[in-house]
Design a protein around this nucleic acid. Sequence first.
DNA 1: TGCGTAAACGAACGGTCGTGCTATTCTTCG
DNA 2: CGAAGAATAGCACGACCGTTCGTTTACGCA
Lengths: 194, 194
Amino acid sequence: MGKGEQTREAVLEFASARACTVGLEGLSIGELARELGMSKSGLFAHFQSKAALQVQVLGHASDRFVEEVIRPALRAPRGEARVRALFEMWVAWFHRQQHGCIFVAAITELDDRPGEARDALASQQRDWLDVIETVARTAVTSGEFRADLDTRQFALDMYSIALMLHLTVRLLALPDAMPRANAAFENLLKGARA
Amino acid sequence: MGKGEQTREAVLEFASARACTVGLEGLSIGELARELGMSKSGLFAHFQSKAALQVQVLGHASDRFVEEVIRPALRAPRGEARVRALFEMWVAWFHRQQHGCIFVAAITELDDRPGEARDALASQQRDWLDVIETVARTAVTSGEFRADLDTRQFALDMYSIALMLHLTVRLLALPDAMPRANAAFENLLKGARA
DNA sequence: TGCGTAAACGAACGGTCGTGCTATTCTTCG
DNA sequence: CGAAGAATAGCACGACCGTTCGTTTACGCA
């Protein structure tokens, strides 16, 4: 990895963390440069526009997400165990983020702003729902989940829990946020079992 | 209502709609003034800072929400009917908003930005959850819901459905978003019944 | 070691931002 | 109708925005 690629990665790493707080639109090239100890123009040269930076931030975060959530979860045995791993890996990822999940933050920021960034996010979110659904299906074929389970609905329900966890932990700071999320998840599993 | 109060209301009305797209931070006094056909300083004089404007936008939206969602729902008969009315009124409110629900949008924007706006939002969200919980309790005392129902969990689960609806409709534009939300809600009710 | 290129820099651009002032216009009420 | 006061306009400010340009530094390879 050349020098350029290296700093580009560092910028994306920092920017994706920063975006959790200030949003993708709230990212400022000048501030990023200041925080990273480089010049505005030097940083800007790696991307050709702020819009491109935003798209690449989402792409970078997406790669991370696959690496840290999806891939580890897929190593769990097929069936309910893998569904559970997916949920737990997401929760672990969520708690590892100092300032919340960038995707959850971006959902409401971009849902009304057409553009490449929005398209990238929507695609990522569709993929995520597909992964949940596919993993749920392994539990159906393994016989642990009902044969007539609506796996699409299951994926949406499971993701709902993650969204609620985000709200209860980050904005409301409810002390029982995590137990509540776990209870909802266990209830979801109960309803899905054969 | 004097002239001042009148234009202040008009500004808040427009700004709260605009905030759904660009966020509370994305609101610009200059742009608001331009769109409303008045001068920047004239508009600014009604609020004494942008932060105050943001807080008042949330307050304005909060009043609207009480008027258009909570109050009508409370007119439904106690019990499951009222729970259902609450959900339906929220869905109707959501669909009436051209650019999404400002509260859902603000959740992820403000959850990492301490300040009066964040406090106001958190308070509004706590109230909303309390309303759901209280209404669910009327269904418990009426005997329609299980006596041992965890109404707090019910409130969180019900709100989760709203959050998911926001995602599926606004970002993903899933054609079956509404049926999915309804299915989740009916399932929630089924699990709550005596 | 030296050369070619990639990477970072510094300065500047036109704009827009939020926020003060002061002056002017409009409302309201005696 | 006319005066007091509220509401709005006009203008200026310093700061920061994304972006461009020409220059300088640093790296990678012959």
